[in-house]
Write a protein that binds this DNA or RNA. Structure first.
Lengths: 221, 221
DNA sequence: TGACATACATACAATACGGTCGGTATCTTG
DNA sequence: CAAGATACCGACCGTATTGTATGTATGTCA
């Protein structure tokens, strides 16, 4: 298959069609089976290319892992940058809208909503530093995009906190990652959504919004 | 090595010395390298036994994974059952003492404090249902040991909650699992402890203990 | 159009891996 | 002590896996 597919014109030398297909295949297959259990052949077959193409674009399997983590950071970065949760004027509303958005995009098959870099981190943190660092950049880089809104909300509301915006931002990612593990363990996406609900309740409590009934009744997706 | 070690008397047929050594080796090696990247030879070498012993005690590598998850559930079960956090008379104090305990035992090398079954779940959830189910039993079984105290605290304090004790108990595990991922990504155990601090603050808020300064200043380990 | 770089495909090499098998030592039981 | 069961050893087998070497088609550019 794919034998006589028209090859796209290569204007950008570093972004061939096969390369992107390999990265997207890696993203999905690794989220299903994990990094180590995913063979190069698996990825090639899923991408519809041969091993020659794979090793033309990536020097080693580990190099693919690094590239996949960076690709993940890029694509999710643009997804979240263009998401609607930045609209509210109130910074706290933006933070809560972010959490609603995160909850809303949880659904479908496990491999569709879980986090590639969280999965890879667990596996390679002690054996493949290059992949681990790329994963850490992705997770912490995304967390950093929340800091400004959190800090602005804290300043605006005059909350005298003994936590930092950076720490709370990281905590949101930890809750999501932990929720994904419970969802994988049970096969139930609600396990991940449940954690976001607790997180929303926590953030509201931190900012002294005591209306608990607003959660999981008014917000639907 | 280990060639002339005295073999223990086999009173319990199902608990030979090699079997236990294999399970403990698997526990530590898998926490370092992950399940798929850990070879049977790796485990045998770490345990100081041969492959013959391995396949005598475990039919397949997957069977070892299931046994390792059950062994993890057993050993951590007795650890937590005999831990001092059950002492307080007040159920909420027991819950908070549990969280302090969880925070206190985070430290040392990553493979020493992270969760075996959380790690394995991420990898095999879609490919090895038997392992996944054993991991789910371990995580949810441990969460269930918290439910009674949480529910007792809720009833005693008259908290009109729109969350369930089971859900909050699961959330504690999700926060821990997520913290482990951040700790692995950064190599910093504080990332995991930080999440527990947020969780403690959340639980205190749920039960209307508004003294935030108590955290991370009065509690040391 | 010719020369070259890029983008693949295919076959193959080296080895790592899970699992098997025959054998031996030790324990249990009568 | 006899005899079977259990525990363990270590060589071996077939396959899967990563990576390489070579060939070929296509685009680029002077």
């Amino acid at each position: 298959m794919y034998v006589n597919m028209p090859r796209p014109t290569k204007q950008s030398p570093e972004r061939g069609d096969a390369r992107t297909r390999l990265l997207e295949a890696a993203r999905d297959v690794i989220r299903r089976k994990g990094f180590a259990a995913t063979s190069v052949d698996d990825i090639c077959q899923s991408a519809g290319v041969t091993k020659g193409a794979f090793f033309h674009h990536f020097k080693t399997k580990e190099a693919l892992g690094v590239a996949a983590a960076k690709y993940w950071a890029e694509t999710t970065g643009t997804l979240f940058a263009s998401a609607p949760y930045h609209a509210p004027d109130d910074p706290l509303d933006r933070v809560l809208a972010y959490l609603d958005f995160r909850k809303a995009i949880i659904g479908g098959e496990t491999y569709e909503y879980t986090c590639l870099v969280g999965t890879m981190t667990q596996e390679v943190h002690d054996t493949a530093p290059a992949i681990r660092d790329a994963c850490a950049d992705s997770i912490l880089g995304h967390a950093a995009t929340l800091e400004a809104d959190i800090e602005a909300a804290r300043a605006q509301r005059g909350v005298d906190a003994n936590w930092t915006a950076a720490s709370l931002a990281r905590h949101t990612q930890a809750v999501l990652q932990g929720g994904f593990i419970l969802a994988k363990a049970t096969g139930d996406a609600d396990m991940a959504r449940e954690g976001v609900d607790h997180l929303i309740r926590y953030v509201r409590a931190l900012f002294c919004l005591d209306d608990e009934s607003a959660i999981s009744t008014t917000r639907e997706n």
